Amino acid sequence: MTVRPATRLSAEDWAVAGLHLLEAEGVEALQINRLCSELGVTRGSFYWHFADVAELRSAVAERWRAETRAVLEELGRVGTLPPGERLELMTLRLVDDSWWSAERAVRGWAATEDSVRTVVEESDRFALDLLTRTLQDVGHEPHEARVRAGLLVYAGIGFAHGRNGLPRPTEREVRTMMRVLAGPPDPEPDVGKDA
């Protein structure tokens, strides 16, 4: 699909187009000629913003990081909602197809490029910290919240990579998973009582 720009493209326009191409066809498709064709522009337009394809790829990885972080921050800002509802909103991202095509593509790319791996690791730490804070708001002690948050993050990463070969969970199943992994804190044991 060739798009004829009405105005001069920005570096951000190139990064967005690159991310869409990455989602659709993988990192190998992130080539100058291919993007110029998709955008309906000349190579000169590309070189106005980037020195080479490596610089473009960095911009694409940064665009993914920014989009991912914005979504997570928005979910985390839903502070007026009870923590359980915040967790549910975060977890329901697992059944959102628009989220996972980019997620899978970027994570695959991170396996072969250190700079992209760094971006993915930062994003994962951000998600882990956000979930940990939300689970503490639910009432879990810090260590317990971190363990449960880790399980949720790992479940999400696994879902991104396993969703083609495994049955897609329904929203109800995702909510059940969230309740199991993030459920209420365990009650304090009765110390000193006879069993």
Rank of each mutant, 00 (worst) to 15 (best):
S115K: 08
T112C: 06
T132F: 00
D137V: 01
V138S: 02
A105S: 11
R168I: 03
R117P: 08
E122Q: 15
T118Q: 15
G139Q: 04
S123M: 08
L151W: 11
Y154S: 14
A145I: 01
A111L: 15
W109G: 00
R163F: 06
R146D: 01
E144W: 04
D129W: 02
L128C: 09
A110L: 06
L135G: 01
G165P: 02
V120A: 14
R148C: 00
E141N: 06
T134Q: 06
R163Y: 05
G139E: 04
Q136C: 04
G162Y: 06
P169R: 06
R163S: 10
V153P: 02
R133V: 06
R168L: 08
F126D: 12
A145D: 04
V147M: 08
G150L: 00
L151A: 13
A111H: 12
W109C: 01
V138D: 05
L166S: 14
E141V: 03
D124G: 11
G165Y: 14
G158W: 05
R168Q: 13
A110P: 04
H143Y: 09
D114V: 07
G165E: 13
A110I: 03
D124L: 11
P142L: 06
L135D: 00
A105I: 03
G156T: 08
I157N: 13
E103T: 10
S123T: 14
P167L: 05
G108K: 06
V120I: 15
F126P: 10
L130E: 13
D124I: 09
D129M: 03
V120N: 10
D129P: 08
G156E: 09
T134W: 01
E171K: 14
N164S: 15
R117M: 12
F159Q: 12
E103Q: 10
R104V: 05
A145K: 00
L131F: 06
S123R: 04
V153R: 09
L166P: 09
L128M: 14
L130S: 13
A160I: 02
L135H: 00
R125T: 13
G156D: 11
V120D: 07
S123Q: 11
E144L: 05
G162M: 07
V116K: 00
F159P: 00
T112D: 14
F126C: 11
S115F: 13
E121A: 11
T170E: 08
Q136E: 15
A145Y: 03
V147C: 05
T112P: 02
S115D: 14
T170I: 02
V116H: 04
N164Q: 15
T118K: 12
R172D: 15
A145L: 02
Q136I: 01
R104K: 10
V119C: 09
V106G: 02
R168S: 12
H140I: 01
L128Q: 14
G150N: 07
A105Q: 06
H143D: 09
R133T: 11
A160F: 01
A145E: 01
G139D: 05
A105F: 03
R104N: 08
L128E: 15
